[in-house]
Design a protein around this nucleic acid. Sequence first.
DNA 1: ACCAATTTGTCCGTATGTATG
DNA 2: TCATACATACGGACAAATTGG
Lengths: 255, 255
Amino acid sequence: MPTAPFFRRIDVAPAYQKVADAIEREIVNGRIKPGEPIGTEQELVQQFGVNRSTVREGIRVLEEGGLIQRDSSRRLHACLPRYNKLATRLSRALVLHEVTFRELFEASMTLEAASIQGAVERATDANVAELADNLERSEKVVADPAALAELDAEFHVLIAKASQNRVLQLAREPAAQLFFPTTEMIVGRIAEGGARLVEAHRHLLDAIKRRDKEAGALWTRRHLQDWRRGFEKIASLDRSVEHMYMEHAHAARRR
Amino acid sequence: MPTAPFFRRIDVAPAYQKVADAIEREIVNGRIKPGEPIGTEQELVQQFGVNRSTVREGIRVLEEGGLIQRDSSRRLHACLPRYNKLATRLSRALVLHEVTFRELFEASMTLEAASIQGAVERATDANVAELADNLERSEKVVADPAALAELDAEFHVLIAKASQNRVLQLAREPAAQLFFPTTEMIVGRIAEGGARLVEAHRHLLDAIKRRDKEAGALWTRRHLQDWRRGFEKIASLDRSVEHMYMEHAHAARRR
DNA sequence: ACCAATTTGTCCGTATGTATG
DNA sequence: TCATACATACGGACAAATTGG
């Protein structure tokens, strides 16, 4: 006959993991707020009673997760995980899983459409001003594929921002990071590609200003269909996302 | 007059970061394939010419990023980042940003609808079988909110899988991790809540079997509207996602 | 602008437990 | 069973950078 269960399961985990978990708990529970200092490594050594190397391993884990950061003087602070830093990890995962452009296109179609709908409903004057500024700059570089592609990506980030929906903002980012680098290739090779792109942006901004959902949906479809047609002139939609896109993400992360 | 630029920028980064970057490059570029060994810590010490503590810090970074793993014997292997591990980090970010249930609901509405559409178009027999199995188990626990909520979450994961779109699968996961835990609260407090949920699942599966897009869209809307009405009886949609959900995510990650 | 104290990045050596052959 | 290899963790050390007078 088994004895009564006197003991609770023992939580066995490496020391560095426990350090990371303990700090994470304090941040997620709100006892340490974003921006507040965590303390020096030496202080953590004393509080946890482990070696400094162990503390440092725990710190690396949290840094990578975006929960803590070092400021200019390398002091540790809690911080709000930045979407695009996490999105970069997700993009990398999508590349490694060898997703196809067809998957990317379908998902982006949905996510961008939702962003536009949100923007049409809830964009503020400040959002409209940002978009107008972007459009103005875009019109000046219609003939420069690289610059235009960069502004196109920014335009769609601004639209997601204008939707006031941070979940959407986050959800669209990984696909967008992989999706938009192709824009440069496409507008560079398709006649009138740049002009059509800017025209679509103009109509989208107009739809947002007039709070016209129909027009927003229509021009989102046209805009993405343009991309699709352009892409299919270059490669098959069933090609998997190439490793070259990671160079973009990698270079961007360094800044 | 400035001299000609003889020198390239010096890449100044901590040694542990360079170690992590070097290994990451090899994996992302495909020179080390998922499943292949990275080598022992001692080997890395010799190859990079740095101290073991430094190597270990770099390894923690990559482990947290999901790019490498230790097997049962603690040997290092490259691996494909698991979606739900990354999604957990994103969910955590959403909590810290204090997103509202309204944002969560709007985004999920879009993402689940897209998943269903994809499933209706492309679900395989195996997908249908998995969904049918889930439905069968759900029917047995209609009166058990906790069990039913778990199966509900699984049902929607299976639908996303059936869409054959991994980008969508990934994009919906963070919101879903926060969204579905509320299901338990809702079906527990609303009369007929469990029955309505299972009925919706039945119609969704039926729509997928018949490849009926209209029915799929209709029942997705009804299913989520049910959730929304139920939620609004408990709390305001404008309440921010509470820290309590992190307990779910945290507990799940431990397994 | 200088100095003393603190802190980080890195390294060396070692002890212990565990997995593999 | 035993030996070997390896991961985890520890203590101590030093130079460079940063801080705060």
